[in-house]
Write a protein that binds this DNA or RNA. Structure first.
Lengths: 225, 225
DNA sequence: ATCGTTGTCAACGCTAACGTTGACGCCAGC
DNA sequence: GCTGGCGTCAACGTTAGCGTTGACAACGAT
């Protein structure tokens, strides 16, 4: 609110986007992402971010208005991109099976490409943000993006029923299982260590599509209780 | 450390476990669980807990030494119980398929029985606790429990390869997919709303065992990249 | 009746984080 | 060489949480 001193200068510098200014700003965003990923939003302080860059906390305010804004800058692009990609896949031609596979691999690849930005977002439960210190308006936007991702996935699952490529008795639960499997990667996936996102995505798709049951059995105690 | 005043009295009251004392303490633990679940550990303050109980923050210290201890009390029993249950299932007789199903349903049932205690634990990433304010020794214990759960699951998956009931090309990834699907429930499952944990567990097991692919197809672009 | 225990709470000191201010050294362009 | 913006940083005021202290009112046991 107080457009005083540093606030003015930041706004100005941002407007006439100086050459190296944007670059330094990106360094700060990257450092912020790492800190947020390590400690979570609430436990992170701008002091941590400054230390990681070997600079002073106050210097950050020349580039960023607040911890909240930094969080937004960290997540904004990555999340939007993932959601748009998902919607694109959902709207593609082709049977639902292959679109589901593509959605999973594409999402994993995006998680890798936007590492660790995406995981910062996944870690925070944007649904409970009203009781957190994250900016509320921003949180609503994020929740909305999450909803759109779910919608894209649901569309594929429903299409699968129609085109006969998928057999899904409980679509909403299926959605949560898929999202859970994919998003839980924030606890174990580190780009560069082990398989690539593409490999992992395909293997995950295999598992989710064909199941763990060895072929040549038809069992299934199954169903409700 | 400072065994002064209130600390002494708390220790004493705890030792000669007064009748209503334990009960009031449990109320506080329950309230703590709710607050932790709503806001996450870091964002929660003892002030929040006190307010939820309509009492004063300082009163809590008569029952609980610190926010850290409260967190431990909230998670301790639930997590231990889930892990022990998982190990029991893993050690049971029977083919791997049915044990895997049982592990999933049992876990979901425990999540329901220990709601919201278990979700408080799942929400926090105990692996990054060294950079959080949660007690480090305690965190290690929790990490160890998580490892034991994974171990139990891995045992079942391996057995499935031997007894021929499961076909799993990438066991470790399969483990992460299953755990992800199950644990992600902390974002969408509320006991009493919708299906029961037993129903959900069985449906999830169906999905993971048989996959989403409609039968009568054998496709699979499959595998690595 | 009185005394001690029990549960509570107002108040304190301390720490850490936030966002702001004002000024400093430095290099670029004139 | 002078001047002006640029990036930095020491220092400030403020807020919020922590854990502690000391006392008070209620009540049960003696």
């Amino acid at each position: 609110m107080a457009k005083s001193g540093i606030g003015r200068r930041r706004t100005a510098a941002l407007r006439d986007h100086g050459e190296g200014y944007a670059q330094r700003r990106n360094e700060i965003i990257a450092a912020g992402a790492q800190v947020f990923r390590d400690k979570g939003f609430e436990a992170s302080s701008l002091r941590d971010v400054a230390e990681r860059l070997g600079t002073d906390r106050a210097s950050l305010y020349y580039y960023v208005a607040s911890k909240n804004e930094l969080f937004q800058l960290v997540t904004q692009r990555a999340v939007t991109e993932v959601v748009v990609a998902a919607e694109t896949v959902a709207a593609q031609e082709g049977d639902a099976e292959s679109r589901l596979r593509t959605l999973i691999t594409t999402t994993m690849e995006k998680y890798e490409a936007h590492f660790p930005y995406m995981f910062v977002y996944i870690q925070e439960d944007m649904n409970r943000i009203h009781s957190s210190s994250i900016d509320e308006v921003w949180a609503r936007t994020m929740v909305e993006l999450g909803r759109r991702f779910e919608e894209a996935l649901m569309r594929i699952l429903h299409d699968g029923g129609r085109d006969g490529s998928l057999a899904i008795s409980h679509p909403h639960l299926a959605m949560n299982v898929i999202i859970g499997a994919v998003n839980w990667s924030h606890r174990w996936f580190t780009p560069g260590r082990g398989s690539t996102s593409k490999e992992l995505g395909n293997q995950m798709a295999d598992m989710l599509l064909t199941g763990f049951l060895a072929r040549g059995q038809q069992d299934s105690s199954s169903s409700t209780a």
